[in-house]
Computed example of a mutant assay.
Amino acid sequence: MSIITFIGAGQMASALTFPAFENGHEVRLVGTPLDRDVIDGLRKDNFHINLKRTLHEGIKYYQVEEMEEAIKGADAILGGVSSFGVDWFAEEVLPKIPRNIPLLSVTKGMIDQEDGSMMTYPEFWEQTEGGKGLSINAIGGPCTSYELADKDNSCVAFCGRNMETLHYLKSLFTTDYYHISCSTDVVGVECAVALKNAYALGVSLAVGLAEKKEGIGAVHYNSQAALFGQGVREMRKLLAIVGGNDDNIVYGAGDLYVTVFGGRTRKIGTLLGRGLSFDQAMEELKGVTLESIVIATRTARAVKRLDALGKYKKEEFPLLMHVDEIINQGKPVNIPWKSFEVEYDG
């Protein structure tokens, strides 16, 4: 039996307690400063107020000020913050983790650099004072938290610099419903799954456009599929730009698929497609964390820098550029369908 300390009681981290606990490990779940009510509720009856699931009896719960106690004796740490908690995690958590204990993160996203390159969160953490010398690994792939908690078959990838460490982490979580591949291509896996949020917003525009035309509940699959396909095409190009293995597109495309079918990103895309301005849509979703806005803005900014440097043409990413226009320039939805047309001769 191993001891696994989960830091961050968000929905995905909390869902991952199911395979870990069912494998016989001691599970300690630590809340961030934003998770106080979640931890209070779990201590009462094991019910997670956001995941809407009852966690296993026997899991130990800790408030953020009890973090160091929860880390003592741990064999592995799972980081469960959103992309908005990346800096907090670097400053408040990484320095407390022993250098010989591997970290596995569920946080998805990337940071754009002045030269147009994109940095993964594991790379960012490795460069911080608290992250130096740590084994920082991450999870990517199509997996929603509530379906994982319900034991629906899910296929993901654990990525990191050392395959032996990845095999160890895999042994902690793998079950007959949670299937894990391992990859040392960190930038490839992380880029593929980070981009899905930006493009899920783009695909969801078609949902709103259909509802604007025919009423709430109307569905047009042709337009959604066209945007999905264009999204995958652009994601592949971006994957090549960062130097990731092309095969990682399966994680990004799969993650894009599940994201389009529900959640916060679908909501914002649908509202924009119905005709709401970005500001109006954000007002309606007040208080909702929207990582899709962050990754779309950062990726578009990186592409525009690469275009200015003469390395790539932003016209190769028409869907991304249009999403950026909508959320950062206030332009109305007007899908650039003609720009999706391509010619292959041979």
Rank of each mutant, 00 (worst) to 15 (best):
R36E: 14
R36T: 05
R36S: 14
D37W: 05
V38P: 13
V38T: 14
I39K: 02
I39A: 02
D40R: 14
D40M: 09
D40V: 04
G41Q: 13
G41H: 13
R43D: 05
R43Q: 14
F47G: 00
F47R: 00
H48L: 08
K52G: 04
K52H: 14
K52L: 11
K52P: 03
R53G: 06
R53V: 11
T54D: 15
L55A: 04
L55T: 02
E57W: 02
E57A: 12
E57M: 03
E57L: 09
G58Q: 13
I59G: 04
K60G: 01
K60E: 15
Q63H: 15
Q63L: 11
Q63N: 08
V64T: 07
V64Q: 14
V64F: 15
E65A: 04
E66V: 11
M67S: 02
M67L: 11
A70Q: 05
A70R: 01
K72S: 08
K72P: 02
G73F: 07
A74M: 14
A74I: 05
D75T: 11
D75Y: 04
A76C: 08
A76W: 08
I77V: 15
L78D: 07
G79W: 09
G79F: 12
G79E: 13
G80F: 01
G80M: 07
S82M: 02
S82A: 06
F84M: 13
F84E: 09
F84L: 13
D87M: 04
F89M: 12
F89C: 05
F89P: 02
F89D: 03
A90P: 07
A90Q: 09
A90K: 08
E91D: 05
E91N: 10
E92M: 13
E92K: 15
V93T: 09
V93M: 02
V93E: 02
L94T: 02
P95K: 01
P95W: 05
P95S: 04
K96C: 07
K96L: 14
I97N: 04
R99T: 05
R99C: 08
L104H: 09
L104A: 04
L104E: 01
S105W: 12
S105C: 11
V106F: 06
T107N: 14
T107M: 15
G109Y: 02
M110A: 12
M110K: 14
M110P: 07
Q113V: 07
D115H: 09
G116V: 15
G116I: 15
S117M: 08
M118F: 11
T120W: 03
Y121I: 10
Y121S: 02
P122T: 06
P122E: 03
E123R: 10
F124M: 11
F124L: 07
F124P: 03
W125Q: 08
E126R: 13
E126L: 10
E126M: 12
Q127L: 10
T128Y: 00
T128G: 00
T128Q: 00
G130Y: 04
G131Q: 06
K132A: 08
L134W: 09
L134M: 06
S135W: 03
S135L: 11
S135N: 08
S135K: 15
I136C: 07
I136N: 07
N137T: 05
A138W: 08
G140T: 12
G140Y: 10
G141Q: 05
P142I: 00
P142S: 00
P142R: 00
C143Y: 02
T144N: 01
S145W: 05
S145D: 11
Y146P: 00
